[in-house]
Amino acid sequence: MVVSDQDDLALAVHRQEHGAFDRLVERFECALFRYVQRLLQNDHDAQEVVQDAFVRAHRALTAQYGNEKVRTLQLRPWLFRIARNLSYNRRRGKGLKLEQPLDTAREDQFQPHTRPVLITRELEEREEKAQLDRAIALLPTESRDLILLRFVEEMSYAEISRTTGFNEASLRGKVFRSLKLLRDALGVKGVSHAV
């Protein structure tokens, strides 16, 4: 990740340079979508949230923020923070505690195969992925959120802190507990060591 490049992008959008916003969308749409989709466990809501997040980002960068504010802005955590807030709002709006896990197993779509070795490996991978999807889906929202930011988006603690507003010290314990929950949900035989 090239930080200065991202900051340039924010400035370019601020200056309304041609194609700058399209580049910003292109750069972040995949990451934002997979984050929100797993956070909300809903494809449709995720699309709307991501779209809304980009619109808000555009408005903020072009019409609301001054030059200085854009210059000091850290684009990635800022965008994730917008998407995260919109996601939590939507969740509150719908009064949902937890959505049903996404149906990721799709066993019925499995086509018989003529290569038995491959079948086993494919099945294993599919099963492993399904297990992980389920485990993540069943985590409490906050833990799921942190697991996604830390291990899928590979954010630093500093970035996660900017995204979520948790301070770095408390983040440490929160991420540790989330990892523990994920491990338990996966039924991994963990080391029963401390905590």
Binding site: E29, R38, F151
Partner: peptide, 16 residues
Amino acid sequence: TLSEATRQYCQDTSAP
């Protein structure tokens, strides 16, 4: 192991 597995299985989600 956990972080590697999570990264590998979740990063392949592509935007619709």
